[in-house]
Design a binder for these strands. Sequence first.
RNA 1: GCCGACGUAGCUCAGUGGUAGAGCAGCGGUUUCGUAAACCGCUGGCCGGGAGUUCGAAUCUCCCCGUCGGCUCCA
Length: 579
Amino acid sequence: MSASSVDLETLRHSTAHLMAAAVCELFPGAEYGIGPSIEDGFYYDFLLPGGTHFSDEDLPAIEARMHEIQGRHSQYQRSELARAEALLEFRRLGQRFKVDLIERIPEGEVISCYRTGDFFDLCRGPHVPETGAIPAFKLLHTAGAYWHGDETQPMLQRIYGTAWNSQAELDLYLERLEMARKRDHRRLGRELDLFSLSDELGGGLVLWHPNGATVRTVIEDHWRREHRRRGYQLVYTPHVAREQLWETSGHLGFFADEMYGPMEVEGERYRIKPMSCPFHILIFSSRRRSYRELPMRLAELASVYRFQRSGTLHGLLRVRGFTQDDAHIFCAPDQAEAEVAGVLDMVQEMMARFGFNQVEIDLSTKPAKAAGQDEMWELAEAALERAIQTRGLDFKLNPGEGAFYGPKIDVHIRDAMGRRWQCATIQFDFNEPERFGLEFIGADGLAHRPMMVHRTLLGSMERFFGVLLEHYGGALPLWLSPVQVQLITVSDDQLDYALGVAARLEQAGFRAEVPDRPGERMQAKIRDGELAKVPYLGVIGKREVEAGTVNLRSTREGEQVVLGIDQLIERLRLEAAQS
RNA sequence: GCCGACGUAGCUCAGUGGUAGAGCAGCGGUUUCGUAAACCGCUGGCCGGGAGUUCGAAUCUCCCCGUCGGCUCCA
């Protein structure tokens, strides 16, 4: 037990060393890669000798050895080595990954190492003073990981663990993990009968059940309304197109790996669409465009299909068929900044409406290999950055991480397990307008090339719905709930009255239902309503029928009030507008 | 795709070489009840698929498929 709290990053990194020390003792000859601290914990990558692997069952033994080493109170001893010395030492130890790392360290930089008992590691530090100074840790699971994340490199085995300043904090964290598992969207999807995935259907393809479809419709209706309000024009485009179109757009050149194979129709090859941009471009170029028509904002809820490797599929968050809330903005260069700003405002508004007040913004700029002229890149990057800054938003700059065809802003939100998922993206494209020879006639009577922006706000209906479910733990706000009110009768005698109330609520625009379970006890129906996370349960017995009221139980606040039907409608209206 | 784990009824899970089980759900009946589970009964399984070992396999071995945790990639 340490009284003073150690910086968590240091603590976790030191725990990673402790774990590596234990692994090296238990598996002599193990090679080790990197072992950083990460959010909520740490990991270390290993390659065991003789092609052996450890599994989750080895973790308790490793943990036990870690505790044993802690008992020895080994110091974390720092030393600085000359480059040649370090290379020699790690070659002697047979640690090829460390040798690789040293070779990547720029000349002239200090090479520091840490020794903990017999364990010797290349490491920048800092560390806790000794192994006993780690109050609480736990190993969590193993995973495969390529060296340098490169699939041409050997695959190492990674052990993930977590470490905290006290047992209580560790317990709290483990509890948090358990809570997160409970609000996993895949579990909620089944429990609330929202969607399913089926082996018979095929991987990464989603079946939206009636409840899920209801929520999606509400989201889509809201989305369309907002887009019309902000000067977007809604369009529809097909699901397939001639292969030639994908040649022209360049997708077959740089995106073919993610596209499904061709199908032949009357000797002509067609492809299922992985993106909508070429279609929207064809709409733009279907006739001569004037500068007066710019900016032209074309939006569509577009279902696309992309091949994803089987190991990457994940519930609704990573699928093969999904519906993007896609839009393409064609504008003049001097309109670019205002357009980006408009999109950013829209992202924030949209996210806030769905309860996401914290988003993470990344700005990715020009990579080494890039299409388009430098001044276009500069203009676009400046537009993106200024739009972020004038809104007072934080962002992370990723230099050189942009696509080859343009810089971009990505917006991430997090799932229940803390994993980051990209949703909104605002992406300039200097490539496609060029390839399709897009132009508009300017005030000067001459043809000019428009700038083009791809953007999505929610990302895809599937992913957004998944993250949304986890965000609310399945208890969606009133306006999104598939069933907003259930009317529960004390006995079957009140069924007619309940159906009448339901009809009035439906008429007022709410989704209300009367559970069809003759003879079932009220308590059972209440329990079902609670488990289904229906926001309001209107209990109706003799008293309510006589008084023309409903005894409203809020499943969220646990509150209970008697309301007349008009009052009930008024209350629902108010809440639906706000939440 | 790669590394590891897992796959038993619709769901959650028990069953480690000797006749496939429980709870919930579903169905049938009885019950008409005041804020989180009424009672009784019934149905339901090629134990993911295939091959092998064995007198005998849910159980042991191999291959395949799928799922999960990661790696890479991405909305």
